[in-house]
């Protein structure tokens, strides 16, 4: 049974996209990514340590021939810095995809929406396939879609908060209006949160802390993989409606006297 989705002309089977931050070491990163079944992984762009440069490189662990690498602009607070970071990432040679993040506030790590729109417009013009991290704001998502972003990535809750979907109604509105994949990015805490995202009909979920921060990240990676498959199946199967009163499961005729 094939159930693929596409982002910017690339097909994916796994609906779990994982971050690679916060792991103990590259070996744990590799194992968690493997167990998650993810085909796309996010990475950050940072300065090379030029005094201690013999350290192993992340992409020695995660082969770009096997995984689609999605560089992010994490840590950028202005459109200019985000665009600069995206351009550096592209020159480092993993393609045109970018997870655009322009952060507006240190404490909540909520996106700066006007700056995100500005940066997205410039990156789209420059030929990037832009996947913007954005507030769960239907209008912002509509603007990003209209300017040519390859997907929209509304947050479920603040980055690393583990609070789950705070506003499923907004996510539903975003899903109804979207002609590009909707990927919930950030805020997932546990497997049921991920299943719920899929039950709403989202194309995929992007998470990092929920797996990397779990006591057993490898086990949690497996839990997320299974939850996302279960949630997707439930969405495709079409759930029953919710009713206030009971409906008997056994025949109501043929009862003994």
């Amino acid at each position: 049974m094939s159930d693929q989705y596409e982002i910017a002309g690339r097909s994916f089977t796994s609906r779990l996209i994982v971050g690679t931050g916060k792991y103990r070491d590259f070996e744990q990163t590799r194992e968690a990514v493997e167990e998650s079944g993810a085909e796309m992984v996010t990475v950050a762009v940072r300065r090379v340590n030029i005094t201690d440069r013999d350290k192993e490189n992340l992409l020695d662990t995660l082969d770009p021939a096997r995984y689609t690498i999605l560089p992010n602009t994490a840590g950028c607070y202005t459109a200019e810095d985000a665009v600069r970071t995206a351009k550096l990432a592209r020159e480092a040679g993993v393609g045109n995809l970018v997870k655009l993040e322009v952060i507006g506030d240190e404490k909540t790590l909520m996106p700066d929406v006007p700056a995100t729109l500005d940066a997205a417009a410039e990156l789209v013009r420059d030929g990037f396939d832009v996947l913007p991290y954005v507030t769960d704001d239907p209008v912002a998502c509509l603007r990003l879609q209209d300017m040519g972003c390859a997907a929209v990535m509304p947050l479920a809750a603040p980055i690393g908060s583990g609070l789950g979907i705070r506003n499923p109604y907004n996510i539903r509105i975003i899903l109804e209006q979207s002609t590009v994949p909707v990927i919930v990015d950030a805020g997932v805490g546990t497997a049921s949160d991920a299943a719920r995202v899929m039950e709403l009909g989202c194309a995929a979920v992007l998470m990092n802390t929920a797996i990397a921060g779990a006591e057993d990240p490898i086990r949690m990676a497996r839990a997320m993989r299974l939850a996302i498959q279960a949630g997707r199946d439930a969405y495709c199967a079409g759930r029953i409606g919710m009713k206030l009163y009971a409906t008997a499961s056994s025949p109501i005729t043929g009862l003994i006297d």
């Binding site: 971050g19 690679t20 931050g21 916060k22 792991y23 990163t29 996010t42 990475v43 950050a44 762009v45 940072r46 300065r47 090379v48 030029i50 490189n57 992340l58 992409l59 690498i69 560089p71 992010n72 994490a74 550096l88 990432a89 480092a92 993993v94 980055i159 950030a186 992007l206 998470m207 990092n208 802390t209």
Partner: peptide, 10 residues
């Protein structure tokens, strides 16, 4: 001059 590479991140 800035020289950058990819590191773990979300």
């Amino acid at each position: 001059i800035e020289i950058v590479q990819f590191v773990g991140g979300g």
